[in-house]
Structure formats: C-alpha cells, structure tokens
Simulated scan of single mutants.
Amino acid sequence: MSQASQATLGSSEFDRDTAVTRREPGVYDIDLSAGWTIINAVNGGYLLAVLGRALADALPHPDPFTISAHYLTASQPGPAVVRTETVRTGRTLSTGQASLFQYDEQGAEVERIRVLASYGDLATLPDDVRTSARPPAIPPMEQCFGPEDGPAPVPGSSAIADRLMLKLDPATLGWALGAPSGKGEMRAWFGLADGRDADPLSLLLAVDALPPTAFELGLTGWVPTVELTVHIRCRPAPGPLRVAIITRNLAGGFLEEDAEVWDSADRLVAQSRQLARVRLA
C-alpha cells in the first residue's frame, strides 16, 4: 500500500466500524460489522473498542487508561445498543461503566459485554519512564509470516485477518506446521491493513488480535474470552506495533494470556491480561 493511499485517523474502516450513534445521553446505537469476525463470532478486541469509543463520548476525559470487560454471551454481527453510566468524575480521571446489548428472536435485549473503565488524558502524563521491561525480540517484518503466506483459510474464519497487517514470528508458528512448541507464546508485528496508525482505541483491538497462545500449547478450536483487562500507557508513535503474548498456566480448562504492545519508538504502550476458556478434547 502506498503512503498516499493509507487511511488516517477517522477515515479508516476501523473508525467506521466502531463508530457509535448517540440516541440519547448515555445510549448509543451501532451495527456490529461482520468484517471483524472469527468463524462468525465477533472479535473481543473489536467489541472492546466499540465500548471504548462510546465511553470516550460519554465521559469528560478522552482516553482509556484501564478498561475491564466481562464477556457474558457471544456477540453476532448486526444491530446492538451500548448503554453507559458515569460512575465518578474527577480532575484527572473519570470512571464509567458500559454494557452492550443485542436482541433475541423475541426482540428482548440480551447483554453481551459489561465494562468498567477509567479515562484520562494521555497527553498530560509526565515523560518519566522507569522500567525493567524490554521490547520483544521479533525478526524483521520481511522474515515473518502473515495469513496470506499460509494455506487457504477455513470459510468464514478470515474476515478479521483481511483487515489486519499481521506478521507472526516464525518461532511461534509451530502450530501452523503441526509441531506446536508447547511454550504458549505468540509474537507478531501488528497494524491495520489500510495503513491507519495506532491510537488508544486500536490498542484495545491489538491485545486480542493474534492467534490464541493455546495453539502453541497444542490445542485447537475456539478460545472464548471470559474477562479482559487492558492498561493503556501512552499514545503510540506512528508505525507498526509489536505484540507479545504469553500463557504460563492452563488449568481446569482455563488459561491466562498476558500481552504487551510496543510501538516504533520502543515504548510499552499497552498491557493486558485475559482469562479464556479452552476446550480440552
């Protein structure tokens, strides 16, 4: 994609598909796009960005600092409503909650996700970093592999992949070759396929966009998220992101995924932890 054809903030498909329409104060309508699905299930990171955008409108501060979501029922493409509530407002932080609802066959509302979040202004944070964290060691992008480099996808499974620039570290691709490493690690270069640079809302997508670490543990199939908490640390610099995810413990049919997102300036811009359910054959 040439630089001239790259999407900008506000003009990207991601922006259009996460846009919410205010029906009345605290109530927003959206049509969830089928473009962000994995085998007909809407991606949890995309859904979190939808709720995050509604809260950014409802609260007096612009940026999510921390946002925790419980995924109650599986969302489907189509109409949905987001209901928000302001819990507290302060000088530097405001806290709100939001729920996304869809409709059953009788037209009754079914709650899909419930979120609690604190918002602030990332532009006001001091430039003081004291950390032992280091960016993940990922080979250059040209030495990594994307969905386009593999076999033909399962019908209905690749909609979200078409909207992402995803280049996976070969060291975490054993599962694709039938030889999973057993390490529970996934690393990749990440961006949006239309070239739009990352912002705090797209970071909510980035932490949940890679293949599940369960694949490298030798497991297959859907790994539905139960709970996901994301911390946004700063606004990302232009350019591709690096995402590293690791699972250290799988027990009782549940695993955790700890993610770090690093920008082109070698800054840790987002962290997350999620609890997910796996199907053990």
Rank of each mutant, 00 (worst) to 15 (best):
K167A: 14
F190T: 00
D149Y: 08
L173R: 10
S12N: 09
P151S: 10
P136F: 04
I245R: 09
L204A: 02
A34E: 11
D17G: 10
G146T: 04
G45Q: 02
G78R: 04
L173M: 13
W262T: 01
T84H: 03
A19K: 07
E227A: 13
R88D: 07
T220L: 08
Q97C: 09
P64I: 09
R23D: 13
A276N: 00
L177F: 14
R91N: 12
R273S: 13
R196D: 04
R163H: 15
L177M: 11
P180V: 03
G252N: 12
V223R: 00
P77K: 05
S202Q: 07
Q3N: 08
D104Q: 05
T172H: 04
C144Y: 03
A19W: 07
I113H: 01
I246A: 14
P151M: 06
R134L: 14
P224N: 04
R23G: 08
P135T: 02
Q97P: 01
R130L: 11
S118L: 05
L72T: 08
G45E: 06
V129G: 04
T172A: 02
I30L: 12
F190M: 00
A74T: 14
S75A: 15
A117W: 04
G239E: 08
L51A: 06
G26A: 05
Q274D: 02
L168M: 09
I38H: 01
D128E: 15
I232W: 02
P139E: 09
G253Q: 03
D31N: 11
A74S: 15
C234I: 00
G90M: 08
S5L: 14
E85L: 14
M141P: 06
Q271V: 15
F190V: 00
L241S: 06
S158A: 14
D57A: 13
L268A: 13
S2L: 11
G178F: 12
D194C: 08
A108S: 13
H70N: 11
A161T: 09
V154F: 15
P140C: 08
D104S: 09
M141Q: 15
F190R: 00
G52F: 03
G252T: 09
C234P: 00
W189R: 00
G35A: 14
P25L: 10
Q271A: 14
E216S: 07
E111F: 02
S2C: 03
A133M: 13
D121M: 05
P77S: 04
V50P: 03
A19S: 11
L280R: 07
P180D: 10
A58Y: 00
P211G: 08
A237D: 10
P170R: 10
G174K: 09
T18H: 04
A4L: 13
L9I: 14
P211E: 05
Q3A: 13
